[in-house]
Computed example of a mutant assay.
Amino acid sequence: MNQPLNRIDGQPSLSERAYQQIRDAIMQGRLESGRRLVYRTLAEELGISPTPVRDAIQRLVSDGALQLDDRGVAYVPVLTAETYIETINLRLTLESMAAAAVAAMPDGREAIADQLAEIHERVARAQREGRPVDALFGNEQFHFVYLRAAGMPILEGLVRSLWLRCGPSLRLVYNKGFKPLSVHPHVRLIEAIRKGDAASARHAVEADLKYAGKHILAQLDPHARSPENWD
């Protein structure tokens, strides 16, 4: 039987690696809303030619993570309150579903909880030491540990796409006096997974996204009202 495709050997292409780096920077909020992404400037930062950067940018435009202006220059979209609310509501549904699935697993929960606890401690330390970039990176790791552990790759892909769309807003969580809850929802999620309590795992993720979401929404648009389901 003839194979329709040939095997590809070797390391990821330069365009793939550029895509991963730029995508990660968007997801972690390191590229702010409205920022223009010039091929040659990015190529110099990455130490590669503009061609793979152009390929990476085109992929991210197709993903909805970037947009093109009238001159064809890519930029990070400015997130509106309406888009942010829709994105967070979708994340609420999908991420809480994944967390509940992990807590309902018959085996392996303790190892997942241990991994989450280690990452959460790194995030908390980065926050205390005033390292927001490291905290954002750790927060992304935390969420995608339980998303991957849920064993639902389609759901994980959908959530990754949503993170791309709201990534530029994530840095706002550390702005203007954000005060963490007395018991962080991450801690509640870890405890729920250890106990096998799917309902509590779902509620912990919802509390996490809603609390941070209100703070970010107020900065995106001081006049916007958070949805009733965020209360």
Rank of each mutant, 00 (worst) to 15 (best):
L92C: 08
L189G: 00
S49Y: 03
I112M: 05
T93I: 13
A204H: 09
E82S: 08
Q141V: 04
D55T: 07
A65E: 03
A104F: 09
Y84V: 02
V61E: 11
Q141D: 10
R125M: 11
P168W: 01
G34R: 07
A113N: 04
Y39M: 00
R128K: 14
S96K: 13
I216S: 00
L220G: 01
H215A: 12
V53P: 09
P52K: 02
L172I: 01
N139P: 00
K214Y: 08
G10P: 01
L92A: 04
F142K: 06
R194F: 15
R54N: 03
D9M: 08
D107N: 15
R202V: 04
R71K: 07
R171G: 01
P106R: 13
A135C: 12
Q3F: 14
G167H: 07
A198P: 09
S169H: 08
H186Q: 02
I190L: 13
T80R: 06
T87D: 10
R128H: 11
M1L: 08
N175M: 11
A113Q: 14
R160S: 06
S96A: 14
F142E: 10
L164S: 10
D24F: 02
L42F: 03
R202M: 06
F137A: 14
A150D: 11
S182R: 14
Y211T: 06
G29K: 11
V133R: 03
Q20A: 07
D9K: 12
K210E: 05
I8G: 04
G196Q: 15
L136D: 02
A113P: 13
I88F: 11
Q11L: 08
A18W: 05
A81L: 08
D55I: 00
E156H: 09
T80K: 13
L46T: 03
S96F: 10
V173Y: 07
S96Q: 12
N229T: 06
V78Q: 09
F137K: 07
T87P: 02
N139G: 04
L170E: 01
A212E: 14
N229Q: 11
A199L: 09
L217A: 08
T51V: 02
I112Q: 04
R91K: 08
R202N: 12
L209C: 06
A135P: 13
E44A: 10
I88T: 00
L37G: 04
E82I: 00
E95Y: 10
A201M: 15
A100E: 08
Y19C: 06
R171T: 00
E44W: 00
K214I: 07
R91E: 14
G47Y: 00
R91A: 06
N2L: 14
E191A: 09
D55E: 13
L209M: 13
Y84N: 00
G64N: 12
A117R: 13
P222R: 15
E228Y: 07
F144I: 15
R188H: 02
T41N: 05
